[in-house]
């Protein structure tokens, strides 16, 4: 149906396209460590050596773990397998709440303690009016 040249051009462009996909895939595969925005408490536990560099840890704020005294906030980040105790002084974002997602940026003291310099709230993909949330809570 099409001329030989058209077919050749199609093959040429497709081969460029697919080899580039492969390159991008390999690059991301090898850079996986740096592409993730934060580590989970489990990944912190599994670290072979502690870094003194600034890192980010993310997970859920454990229920009933937020402890505010004066300007300091203490809470526990959990991924439901492992936990990490976080110490932070400063203001927290509005959506920072128990049982919700959080990302803490700061420094590891050891495998269990983390000193945060910045707290970010990570919210989930659920959007609903307050009445609906009440109804869901009641039915549970």
């Amino acid at each position: 149906m099409y001329g030989k040249k058209v077919k050749l051009r199609a093959i040429f462009i497709l081969s460029i396209f697919f080899s580039l996909i492969l390159i991008v895939f390999l690059v991301f595969k090898s850079l996986e460590e740096n592409v993730v925005y934060f580590k989970s408490p489990t990944e912190i536990k599994d670290l072979t050596e502690l870094t003194s560099k600034k890192i980010r840890v993310g997970g859920m704020v454990k229920e009933k773990s937020i402890n505010v005294n004066q300007s300091e906030v203490n809470f526990v980040i959990t991924d439901f397998k492992n936990e990490l105790i976080v110490n932070y002084s400063g203001s927290v974002p509005n959506l920072f709440e128990e049982g919700k997602g959080v990302v803490a940026e700061g420094f590891l003291k050891d495998r269990n303690f983390f000193t945060a310099v910045k707290i970010l709230a990570k919210h989930d993909e659920n959007y609903m009016p307050p009445e609906v949330e009440e109804a869901i809570k009641e039915s549970n």
Binding site: V35, P93, L95, A121, K122
Partner: peptide
Amino acid sequence: PTWGTWWAWDA
């Protein structure tokens, strides 16, 4: 207002 930051270098 939600996350607490203007910008994040996430994926």
